[in-house]
Amino acid sequence: MGHTRAKKLEEYLVRESLLILSMIALALVQMSLLPTPLGSPPTLLLVLVVCRVLLGIGSGTIFADSGLEGAARWAFYGGLTLDIGSATPLGSHALALLGAVIVVAVGTSRLRVDGPLLPLISVLIGALVYEVLLAILVYNQFTTLNEWHMYAMSVILPSVLLTLIPALPLFFLLRWLFRVQ
């Protein structure tokens, strides 16, 4: 019995370590390798965690957890890596990603939507939550509504639109990967 518990713990630690390394790698890809057509790269990690929420899967696979649980861990590890790489306060990106994950998870919990519309809307909502939370946590110098309006038009809107571009391809790629497993 004790041996089984130790083995399970070991497997969990290995799995978690792999997950952390994967998230570090993905964060690095987002920060360093992705093109920056509008001055910033598409928020790859956000798209992935939102897709992860939607692709909740059962036990028996490497990502054996519900969508929200897995996505929250992805968001936490990935967000911390983004914070270290972008010199923002530790936890800010993690909070923004976790916020997006929770909102999407809660918002889609009762939906029965077929086709690609749900992933797109989920990424759109998640991106909005993510950008707003980041603006509050990191760039909290806006005091007037006009400043917020300007920021929304010049930063949030382009970033959200840019995030939508890889949303569907990544969603279907992840779904295919999970199925293969």
Partner: peptide, 19 residues
């Protein structure tokens, strides 16, 4: 899962303020 997500949020918040 929701509780876990909220816990991670709390941890991130603690890290945020600490940093």
């Amino acid at each position: 899962p929701l509780l876990m997500a909220l816990m991670l949020c709390g941890l991130a918040l603690v890290l945020f303020f600490a940093d």
